[in-house]
């Protein structure tokens, strides 16, 4: 049965939903789902909850959480940092049964955070759903969003580099689409790179890409990362799922094929 509860972390309670089987019904394996940030998380939440339910249905333990300062967890977004969010993931992992195999499923920037966590924990498999290739890439997108918002308002239109300067050099917290983007968070984001992450203990990496047609080519950057991982001796799977870019669509877009695809990879 899916439950909702707060998990105590260093800076505040983390809102979690999931299913943890009682000890007398030990789950075969466990899964931690790592969500995307900000607006992408809002659009993705329904899908993550559906994934958690389906994973529980195959008898696994599963937890989905909100990072500190996001969703229903305590704290303000402007007080968050990558360091805080790393420790959030550590807190959630510590809650899982240490005697069974741990899998992580990360969406978008959550994929970057999950890959980062795999270098600190014993993770058996990593599933990356349309991962951002770097935190810098996501930060540029966020700053660009601020630019387009200024365009709509007819306000002062500062370029991305000017905004970066205000953020990094002057330490100003920028407001973007209702979220307070702090220098701490920006510096942390810049430090995350998918390709450079140490994923030595992993056996398998599953890449799930959202495409508009089945025969779509693999994104630059991801292809290189996959080559690196294969060269390091990992089993790497790449699945294309045709559906809309659910983290960005105006209306909530379900994607049952993606959920099925992820569960299929987890039970194999």
């Amino acid at each position: 049965m899916q439950e909702a509860f707060f998990l105590k972390s260093a800076k505040g309670g983390l809102f979690c939903i999931g299913t943890l089987h009682a000890d007398n019904k030990v789950a075969r394996q466990s899964v931690v789902i790592v969500p995307p940030f900000a607006e992408e998380m809002n659009k993705t939440r329904h899908l993550l909850a559906a994934l958690a339910r389906q994973i529980a249905d195959v008898g696994y333990d599963v937890l989905l959480f909100d990072f500190f300062g996001t969703g229903d967890s305590e704290g303000d977004f402007a007080d968050s940092s990558i360091a805080t969010w790393r420790s959030d993931i550590d807190t959630v992992i510590q809650r899982m049964n240490p005697r069974v195999k741990l899998h992580m499923v990360g969406f978008r920037s959550g994929a970057l955070m999950a890959a980062d966590a795999a270098s600190r924990h014993d993770v058996h498999s990593l599933t990356l759903v349309q991962p951002h290739l770097s935190g810098k890439q996501q930060l540029d997108e966020i700053l660009r969003l601020r630019l387009t918002a200024a365009l709509m308002d007819g306000g002062n239109r500062e370029g991305v580099s000017a905004l970066r300067n205000r953020l990094m050099e002057e330490g100003e917290t920028l407001e973007v689409a209702g979220y307070g983007l702090s220098r701490d968070l920006a510096i942390g984001l810049d430090s995350l790179v998918l390709r450079g992450l140490d994923t030595r203990t992993l056996a398998t990496i599953n890449c799930m890409e959202i495409v508009s047609e089945p025969a779509a080519g693999t994104r630059d950057g991801l292809r290189e990362a996959i080559d690196d991982w294969k060269a390091a001796g990992m089993q790497v799977n790449l699945d294309n799922t045709v559906c809309s870019e659910f983290w960005a669509t105006r209306e909530i877009a379900p994607c049952p094929a993606l959920v099925d695809g992820i569960v299929r990879r987890l039970v194999n």
Partner: peptide, 18 residues
């Protein structure tokens, strides 16, 4: 486009650019 199509907000502009 700008100011005419209701769906064309800042997130949408970013989406179109991308």
């Amino acid at each position: 486009l700008l100011g005419n199509i209701p769906e064309f907000d800042s997130l949408a502009v970013l989406g179109v650019i991308t």
